[in-house]
């Protein structure tokens, strides 16, 4: 029994203490990785309980969507299906991951209000669990890409492994974004619908199911969209090319800024989350 555990809470504390407690919260959340991996996979399994295919329904849904849209829009845009279908597949997979994390982060605290008021889990635990659930879903969806890769000529080199740091950047950025969006959405209940509609708009503005090359004179429009850069970091390597340096710079820089902002924000409002949720 660890009787040396000491809980100390003071109502008015300065920044150094707030930042230290936020760091301890995130550290404590990370430490419980086995618990949140267990819970997130349990949540996913429960969603598809008693269905024969289980979470692979996620994969099938997306597979059908991607197959139908890939076939249809390659005709509409007059594009070659052999390169267009993999492009659309990866677009949906990766953008689905990004928008899924952002949309779900609205309810990361308000949806767990009962749990937050009952148990002493660090608040970051709920964010880790959210990210983990999306990683598992993404891993299921990845099998679609494998099928596409088997049937379509995608020339993969070593650069394909660049998708891994790209994915890591997406997850990091998602984690930090959720640390800001979560408390804000719990406090202001108008934020979730605003975010929902913004993500819908970005789904169309980002080259998910269309090609960025199609807008040669509007490249600035795509380049100004941060979601495009995150998407490219994973999509380009898996399409057989290295992502543009600009994408690394934008996504890396943005993630760093987000990390600092989220940490300060979380430190400042962490003590209020139990009341807001």
């Amino acid at each position: 029994m660890s009787s040396s555990t000491i809980l100390e809470v003071h109502s008015h504390i300065g920044w150094p203490r707030m930042l230290a407690q936020a760091a301890a919260d995130i550290g404590g959340g990370l430490q419980r990785w086995r618990t949140w991996t267990f819970l997130s996979s349990h949540e996913l399994r429960r969603q598809y309980q008693r269905s024969v295919l289980g979470p692979f329904w996620l994969t099938i849904n997306m597979g059908i969507l991607v197959g139908a849209l890939g076939w249809f829009y390659s005709g509409v845009f007059g594009q070659d299906i052999e390169s267009f279908l993999p492009h659309v597949t990866l677009g949906f997979m990766v953008f689905g991951l990004i928008s899924g994390i952002i949309n779900d982060s609205c309810a990361v605290f308000s949806g767990s209000a009962a749990s937050i008021r009952q148990s002493q889990l660090p608040l970051s635990f709920y964010v880790f669990k959210l990210i983990c659930r999306h990683v598992i879903a993404f891993a299921h969806n990845f099998s679609i890409y494998v099928v596409v890769w088997l049937f379509f000529p995608i020339d993969l080199g070593w650069s394909a492994f660049l998708a891994i740091p790209g994915l890591a950047l997406i997850l990091l950025a998602g984690f930090f974004a959720a640390l800001i969006i979560g408390p804000l959405s719990a406090r202001f209940r108008d934020i979730p619908p605003i975010i929902g509609s913004l993500m819908q708009i970005f789904f169309f503005l980002t080259p998910v199911f269309w090609n960025a090359d199609a807008l040669s004179d509007r490249a600035y429009f795509v380049n100004a969209n941060p979601f495009y850069h995150y998407l490219e970091l994973v999509r380009a390597p898996l399409m057989g090319s290295a992502p543009a340096t600009l994408s690394w710079v934008v996504a890396g820089g943005l993630t760093a800024v987000l990390a600092v902002a989220a940490f300060i924000f979380f430190a400042r409002y962490r003590s209020q989350i139990a009341y807001w949720a």
Binding site: S2, T5, L7, E8, V9, Q118, A274
Partner: peptide, 25 residues
């Protein structure tokens, strides 16, 4: 340690187990 107080301070020594709702979770 779930509700940080608006004023004052709390200090608890030892491992805490909150049992609030028997069936929660």
């Amino acid at each position: 340690g779930i509700y940080p107080p608006t004023e004052g301070s709390v200090r608890v020594e030892g491992r805490i187990a909150p049992i609030f709702d028997l069936g929660f979770g």
